[in-house]
Write a protein that binds this DNA or RNA. Structure first.
Lengths: 211, 211, 211, 211
DNA sequence: GATGAATGAGTATTCATTCAT
DNA sequence: CATGAATGAATACTCATTCAT
């Protein structure tokens, strides 16, 4: 009993793509169902037909963005056999422009902002970080086992590196992504590496740099 | 011979405070003139009377927030005479919860987000960072002159530390500000210190941590 | 298998009729979407649904008025076979009260006025005169061919007669449409006829009436 | 007892001039007290202070316009001694561009339009025509006494000529004031003259131009 | 004489949504 | 599956006006 073509998933995907574009180009306040429908050449009520409400549609958008990130992330790193080179490649990626360009920053921050007043969005947005954190944590774990970086809480290390990259991206949206941005990126990468180096100890370290 | 009270500055301040509150409690989309006026017990057109448009009011809000930050920043640090202790205090402040609470994070991110589609907001928002960056840079400069941290570009160091704190704050809005948050804070502080320590060199450092 | 009714043309027509009435009864300044919708027992946003903006609606109104004129104009004149009688009937119509009553004068002048600051309205309003001018010109042409009026530029003659009728209508809105109005109408008709009479020559005529 | 400078009449005049300009440049709907005050560099409530309401101010504007016309009209005609030449000069003036430019047409029609829904405006607007009609009537009377134009109702003749000039002006706002406009002006002047010529008789004239 | 504060009604338009088709 | 009709609440903003100073 062949069911009639199930256009739903395709249409939904299509709608989310247009939502993304309108949100990117027009901003949160102007990203209305009418605008999105207009950009698709379709009637606004069709969007409701598929998502039942704008809020549901927004939730789906956050998931869609998480997917975009995971698509861009997985795979290519594993191809590098040498662990040192792999770590270097990962850090280069995280602390460079390329990384943040997989999803438009304004869309990313729109979703982040919406999380402040909507818990469901917040929790789905949070899921985005799972995409980064888990593989990163595993990577760090194996590097520790190989004795290439010092023993420490791998999850904490992943969190710290993520915080650094987020800080770089965020600050980049303020100061631009020119030479200054790249300079900061280098420093952050260096700082991250020093955390992994033997002898470093976040909790024990005294402030007095020289005595 | 008191001249007739010039209520404008007082009223404007008052309006911005209510704008801030409504924005914090209701979010961007619901922070309408009507809501703000309602929370003041005043007619919406009065806000227009003082700010002529919502956009102007929003610009003023960004300036207001910059002020909030600068009020919270200046002063107390200078009272610490010992440079090492002063650096420690500054870093403790930057990498802790307290710091980010001077301005509500959702309001801060609302303004940040608005900058994506409004250049005037963007440039005023950017000014917020001047409040942090310049004093921080001067602090680093004097520490270098005292030979307490290694010689490097003080502006770049300030930028890097700021990026770290922003990353911590941002990530904190996602994962919460519990133990994990504090752990990351410690690591970041440690990482920042290692950048300042003798022998560190961002650009020259090799990735291979151990060979 | 009647397809779902296309209510758009009917609704649009209906809206324009109400627009016309409100404009006539209340005047330009009070002819708001709310008033018009109110007079229809319908929600204001429905008018936007059909016309997308008040300006578009106003443009449609001008067209609607042009239609009203053309409906009232075409037809009945042709039924008069005798050319002399036909001319007389046309002039009687043009220089009488009846003529100007097909469209309310205040609505007519509202549209005319709006043309001063809106070129699109101006050009559509202009189109109203095509409705009169072309048939009038043709009429004059055929009368010339029949040798019943003197040879001259038929278009110029039509323009001149139209100017006279417009002057009568306009002045009528000032002095009222009583006996004085009718007296002027007779004089104008007579003046128009004299232009068509043998021997008259607009450009060559000397002012000196008697010497 | 020297009274304090009575600025009222000067201020009122000044306000009306600005009202006129704003009305000319922006149109009825946008000619708000705020705009007018803004163009004067003055607070809106000052206009109310002098005129007590916008409606009163509008009435004053109509009077102001009547004055503009009468200023432009009186005087120079009397200097022409030869009655035939004087008549010619008057008609040339009435049926030419120059005449209608003493008051901006859009302002004139704004006032005219407002008369449709405001009797006080209507009656004051009507007064404008007294400015033309009375001198014109007197002129015609004296020409009749001199036997230079045929005996008829001088008031009716004045009305008819005025209707013609109004028709020309009105139609000119629609078709522009180029060659076509000037052609119509010539025809109307000629038609007016034919009404004054011996043998013409508005009421008695048969339509049949040639028999 | 002139300003500024404040109001409240009113403006066109946008928005998400429902329902019938 | 998709559209169009219709709604009603909400939006920023304009307007004329009043009142106190």
């Amino acid at each position: 009993m062949a069911r009639p073509k199930d256009k739903a998933p395709i249409r939904k995907q299509e709608i989310l793509e247009h939502f993304y574009k309108v949100l990117r180009d027009e901003g949160l306040e102007r990203a209305s169902l009418a605008k999105i429908a207009g950009s698709m050449g379709v009637h606004p009520s069709l969007l409701i037909h598929y998502f039942s409400s704008k809020e549901q549609m927004t939730l789906a958008l956050v998931d869609y963005i998480a997917e975009l990130y995971s698509e861009s992330y997985i795979g290519w790193v594993q191809e590098i056999a040498d662990p040192n080179k792999r770590l270097d490649a990962i850090l280069d990626m995280l602390f460079s422009r390329d990384w943040m360009e997989h999803v438009d920053q304004s869309v990313f921050h729109a979703c982040h902002y919406l999380g402040f007043h909507n818990d469901e969005i917040k929790s789905r947005f949070k899921a985005i970080y799972g995409v980064f954190r888990e593989p990163l944590k595993e990577e760090f774990k194996s590097l520790m086992e190989l004795g290439l970086i010092r023993e420490m809480d791998a999850g904490l290390l992943a969190d710290t590196v993520i915080a650094m990259t987020e800080g770089l991206d965020f600050y980049g949206t303020v100061i631009g992504t020119g030479g200054r941005f790249r300079g900061i990126g280098k420093e952050l990468k260096s700082a991250a590496l020093s955390l992994m180096a033997e002898g470093a100890s976040g909790s024990g370290r005294e402030t007095g740099v020289k005595k």
